[in-house]
Design a protein around this nucleic acid. Structure first.
Lengths: 146, 146
DNA sequence: TATTGTTATACTCTATAACTATA
DNA sequence: TATAGTTATAGAGTATAACAATA
């Protein structure tokens, strides 16, 4: 009997998917490595990065991380224990705790962000300015306007 | 005092880095989601995917995953407990155990791989064939010959 | 009643160190 | 003696369920 299978994707698309997979691995590894240089885990670095843009309630961090709110408690606990983050009361709603980076946390987040420049320099450094424009436009289209 | 700072990257490169970050997040989420549909963790899905290409010693799995060999024991244990993977002796070296997918494991890996096609269809589906060729060439150059 | 954050629990992944059986 | 795989241990992230304080 002929089983109804998902049509195989063409070789071109397959190669692009594989290339993207390589980029994903490389990006992820560099991120973890940059975090590790500050003795931070990936999750901690992500939360610190989020808060450095804008302080936010614990609940919202969980939404951003796509994880359960109960997990955020521990991650912020560890960041707070290291003096990188602090919990502030929300004047508007006393149930809410706003997590915000300390001075040290803000500095660490900045250094972490600079670490990502390594990624920008290395693989992206292979491309000329025109090529980067082309890549930007393709990625923009791919991810849909936004 | 003028602090010697890492030179800031230009806006264009920054945007490309951010776009790649978005792709990375999306790719990762889809991978975890595809794994979850088979009640597999990301690590388990990655190992199963590796072995479906080629059976290999435990040690080599650890190298591929960039983790300690001791971790692989547990991951393969769980895959084996579910009948997706089996450990075979290596005729050439009795210290070595070759991990290989079972029939069920091979089928699961295939379905998992098809799940990645979702990624190929969605964001990549936005691009025409010519655009995909352009993206492929840019990624190839970026990742260096490859 | 509903919501925010937390605690308690259990599972997985991770690294480190010590062990075993081979080589 | 060196290597492959394992075990033991501890820390971190994750989900689920139940709880206190507040809305």
């Amino acid at each position: 009997m002929a089983t109804s299978r998902t049509p195989r994707i063409d070789p071109l698309t397959l190669e692009v998917v594989e290339l993207i997979g390589t980029v994903v691995t490389r990006y992820y590894d560099e991120y973890e490595q940059a975090a590790g240089k500050h003795t931070l885990t990936g999750a901690q670095a992500r939360v610190l990065g989020l808060l450095s843009i804008e302080p936010m309630p614990m609940r919202r961090i969980a939404q951003k991380l796509k994880c359960e709110p109960s997990n955020v408690t521990g991650i912020v606990d560890r960041l707070e224990a290291r003096g990188l983050v602090e919990r502030r009361p929300d004047p508007a709603d006393r149930r809410v705790k706003l997590a915000a980076p300390t001075e040290l946390g803000a500095r660490t987040a900045r250094e972490l962000r600079d670490g990502l420049d390594d990624f920008a320099r290395e693989p992206l450094g292979e491309l000329s300015r025109d090529e980067r424009v082309a890549l930007r436009d393709l990625l923009r289209r791919m991810l849909g306007a936004g």
